Lab assay of single mutants.
Amino acid sequence: DLSALRVEEVQNVINAMQKILECPICLELIKEPVSTKCDHIFCKFCMLKLLNQKKGPSQCPLCKNDITKRSLQESTRFSQLVEELLKIICAFQLDTGLEYANSYNFAKKENNSPEHLKDEVSIIQSMGYRNRAKRLLQSEPENPSLQETSLSVQLSNLGTVRTLRTKQRIQPQRTSVYIELGSDSSEDTVNKATYCSVGDQELLQITPQGTRDEISLDSAKKAACEFSETDVTNTEHHQPSNNDLNTTEKRAAERHPEKYQGSSVSNLHVEPCGTNTHASSLQHENSSLLLTKDRMNVEKAEF
């Protein structure tokens, strides 16, 4: 173990290094160091905050020279020094078990990766560091076993998940096959086929009936047209017969005018059967003409 005197000496050296690497504005270890034209180094955030307070150039807090945003430059070497100082402080805390008085939040800088452990060898070769390295080497064999167990647990979990997924996939297939086998029997399929065939026959029977009705309507229309044509021909046949009657009536009127007047009046009210309204109107006109002729003949006879 380190003596108290040596611990104090190391602590004083760390404090001196820390004062050199402090920012003059925030009085902390410089984060993202930036250098000016006057070779003074500050935190990048502190300098941008200072420049944004005034429009135009501002003055350096140490030498009062003008500073602009374009004049600022990043210093990589200074950032490396800060990183190495942080590593020294971490090693000091691990070796002594004491917390550094002016320690900052170094938890963000710590890294437990194997590459980081290899890099620590180049920091300080001390008894405390050696003991700590031995402890780490002793704890390393235990870690692979834990990793193997965790991997086995994960693989077993994956296997159970896969088996569950396969079961879920197989179950719908089985149910679907069961439904297909038990849903419709052979008799049901035959009945469905016969039902479809009967429906098709009914459709075939319905369509000819409609065509037959249309044919019957067409035949009825044709018969009505033929009947009207026969009526017209009958009226045409009746007209010459009426003319013959008129000639006979004229002759009778010349011989017996008194008797014919009474008979002509009675004939006005008689309509021949089986004739249309057109034929009756023609008869009325003929009878009126005959009456006028008879009157003329009677007057001539009187004179």
Results as ranks from 00 to 15, higher is better:
Ser3Pro: 06
Arg6Lys: 11
Arg6Cys: 02
Val7His: 01
Val7Cys: 04
Glu9Gln: 02
Val10Tyr: 03
Gln18Ala: 03
Cys26Val: 00
Leu27Cys: 01
Leu27Asp: 02
Ile30Pro: 06
Val34Tyr: 01
Val34Arg: 01
Ser35Gly: 04
Lys37His: 11
His40Asn: 01
Cys43Glu: 01
Lys44Cys: 01
Lys44Thr: 01
Lys49Arg: 07
Leu51Cys: 07
Leu51Gln: 02
Gln53Leu: 13
Gln53Tyr: 15
Lys55Arg: 10
Lys55Tyr: 06
Ser58Arg: 03
Leu62Arg: 00
Asn65Arg: 15
Asn65Val: 05
Thr68Ser: 08
Thr68Trp: 07
Phe78Glu: 06
Ser79Cys: 00
Lys87Val: 11
Ala91Thr: 01
Phe92His: 00
Gly97Cys: 01
Leu98Glu: 09
Leu98Ser: 12
Tyr104Asp: 07
Tyr104Thr: 12
Pro114Ser: 05
Val121Phe: 00
Ser126Tyr: 08
Met127Trp: 15
Gly128Tyr: 02
Ala133Pro: 12
Leu136Gln: 02
Leu137Ser: 13
Leu137Asp: 14
Leu137Phe: 08
Gln138Arg: 10
Ser139Cys: 03
Glu140Asp: 11
Pro144Arg: 11
Pro144Lys: 07
Gln147Arg: 12
Glu148Pro: 11
Val153Glu: 15
Val153Ser: 12
Gln154Cys: 07
Leu155Trp: 03
Gly159Met: 04
Arg162Gln: 02
Leu164Ile: 04
Gln168Gly: 13
Glu180Lys: 15
Gln201Cys: 03
Glu202Val: 01
Thr207Val: 12
Pro208Cys: 02
Pro208Gly: 01
Gln209Asp: 09
Gln209Leu: 06
Gly210Arg: 03
Arg212Gln: 08
Ile215Thr: 08
Ser219Ala: 04
Lys221Pro: 07
Glu229Val: 11
Thr230Leu: 06
Asp231Ser: 09
Val232Gln: 07
Thr235Pro: 08
Thr247Glu: 07
Thr248Asp: 02
Arg251His: 08
Ala253Cys: 09
Glu254Leu: 01
Tyr260Thr: 02
Gly262Met: 06
Val265Gln: 13
Asn267Cys: 07
Leu268Gly: 15
Glu271Asp: 02
Gly274Thr: 09
Gly274Cys: 12
Thr277Ala: 07
Thr277Cys: 10
Thr277Leu: 11
Thr277Ile: 08
Ser280Tyr: 11
Ser280Ile: 08
Leu282Ala: 09
Gln283Asn: 05
His284Pro: 02
Leu289Phe: 12
Leu291Trp: 03
Lys293Asn: 05
Arg295Pro: 03
